[in-house]
Amino acid sequence: MTAASTGVPTYASPVDLDTYGPYGPGRLHTSAGWDRPIYPFQGRVTADGSSGFRAEPGRYHLYVAWVCPWAQRTAIVRKLKGLEEVVSLSYVDDERDGRGWAFRERRGADPVNGFAFIEQAYDATEPGYPGHISVPVLWDRQTGKIVSNNFPDITIDLGTAFDEWAGASADLYPRALRPQIDELNAEIYQDVNNGPYKVAGATTQDDYEELRHRVIAALERLEERLGERRFLFGDRITESDVRLWPTLARFDLGYNPLAKISERALTDFPHLWGYARDLYQRPAFRDTTDFAALRFSQGPKPSFLNEGPERIVVEPVEADWEAPHHRG
């Protein structure tokens, strides 16, 4: 009998860096150029079940973190599609030590399995799993295993496989635009989503300067694009907007002060800043965002930060996300 079945919440012990160390060593393996870690569970949910995982109401659960931009995407899509009663969701604690993501009273217990640590979900799927313990995790109640921890696939599947039960009409991945969306997503991933981590991990001055200017150039291209249209593909929100927005939300409070990327804040890009507010002022984005959790200056130094290069001075910027966006 699990804690979830008895109704007694199970919580992990407090974060203990002295005992367990920071998360990363032995778990988080990346290249010198900060390629993302390996996400080995890559099952797909399909409407017809041909993948082995049929889209069904009540079958799947999302484990996510408020602090994680990759996990936030899944929470945004779930709400944009009106799937709150179809796919359940719970949050892990904001902080972690060497044991990885955990459930603590601050963000609530695991309502499905009564796990204290996300590692237990990984071990239930692959006993003795030695790799990166990440969120989001898409869990299958029927098999008692992880379907996927591969974040790019999860939002696509949530956005396309559950239309029979979707309470909203948003088509985030329209067939006619998929090639263009995929192309832009790849650019956003390389130069924007993953860019700050690469800048933070730069080991030489030349690499630091090259990588930070690559992020700045990408932001400038997006600024120009959004000067001509409301969203990245015109008047509709797509998967590309969902993928870009969590990075923008973290830029002024987290990524830029940590990695020292740009002398310009997000608020200094008029179209990008208006666009970001336009999205935030919609429930799917606002209700899945906790700005208090996005300050990377809190807690231990991230394992991906290399302090070798001489970096520009960047301070956090407190912005008014409720200000009118004037993009209607």
Rank of each mutant, 00 (worst) to 15 (best):
S5W: 02
G7K: 01
V8A: 14
T10I: 06
V15R: 03
V15L: 11
L17W: 06
T19N: 09
G21A: 10
G26E: 05
H29S: 05
T30Q: 07
A32G: 07
A32V: 09
G33K: 05
W34I: 04
W34R: 01
D35H: 08
R36M: 07
R36C: 04
P37L: 09
P40G: 09
Q42M: 15
T46H: 12
F53C: 00
R54N: 01
R54P: 12
E56N: 07
H61E: 10
L62D: 13
V67G: 02
C68E: 10
Q72L: 05
R73D: 03
T74D: 11
T74W: 00
T74E: 09
I76E: 09
R78Q: 15
L80T: 05
L80F: 05
G82F: 10
V87I: 13
Y91A: 05
V92K: 01
V92C: 03
D93S: 12
D94Y: 08
D94Q: 09
R96D: 01
D97V: 13
G98T: 12
R99G: 13
A102N: 02
R104Q: 11
R104W: 10
E105K: 12
G108W: 07
G108M: 08
D110I: 11
P111Q: 11
G114K: 11
F117V: 13
A121Y: 03
Y122F: 15
T125F: 07
Y129F: 11
V135T: 05
W139D: 00
R141E: 11
Q142M: 02
V147P: 07
V147W: 00
S148Y: 00
S148H: 01
P152Y: 04
I154K: 08
T155E: 14
G159D: 03
F162S: 03
D163T: 14
A170M: 12
A170I: 07
D171F: 13
P174V: 10
L177W: 07
P179N: 02
Q180A: 14
Q180H: 15
I181H: 05
D182E: 15
A186V: 08
E187A: 09
E187N: 12
I188T: 06
N194P: 05
Y197G: 00
A202Y: 14
D207L: 04
Y208Q: 06
H213I: 01
E220A: 13
R221A: 09
L222E: 01
E223N: 11
G227Y: 11
R229Q: 14
R230D: 02
G234F: 01
D235I: 12
I237E: 05
D241F: 13
V242L: 02
L244Q: 02
W245D: 03
P246M: 06
L248Y: 08
A249M: 08
R250C: 03
L253T: 05
L253D: 00
G254V: 06
N256P: 03
L258Y: 03
I261S: 01
S262L: 04
E263Y: 04
R264I: 05
T267P: 00
D268K: 04
W273D: 07
Y275N: 01
L279R: 00
L279S: 00
R282H: 14
P283H: 13
D287E: 15
F291A: 13
A292T: 12
L294W: 09
S297D: 15
Q298C: 13
G299L: 04
E307N: 06
G308S: 14
G308M: 10
E310V: 06
R311D: 06
I312V: 09
V313W: 01
V314W: 00
P316Q: 13
P316N: 15
W321H: 07
R327N: 10
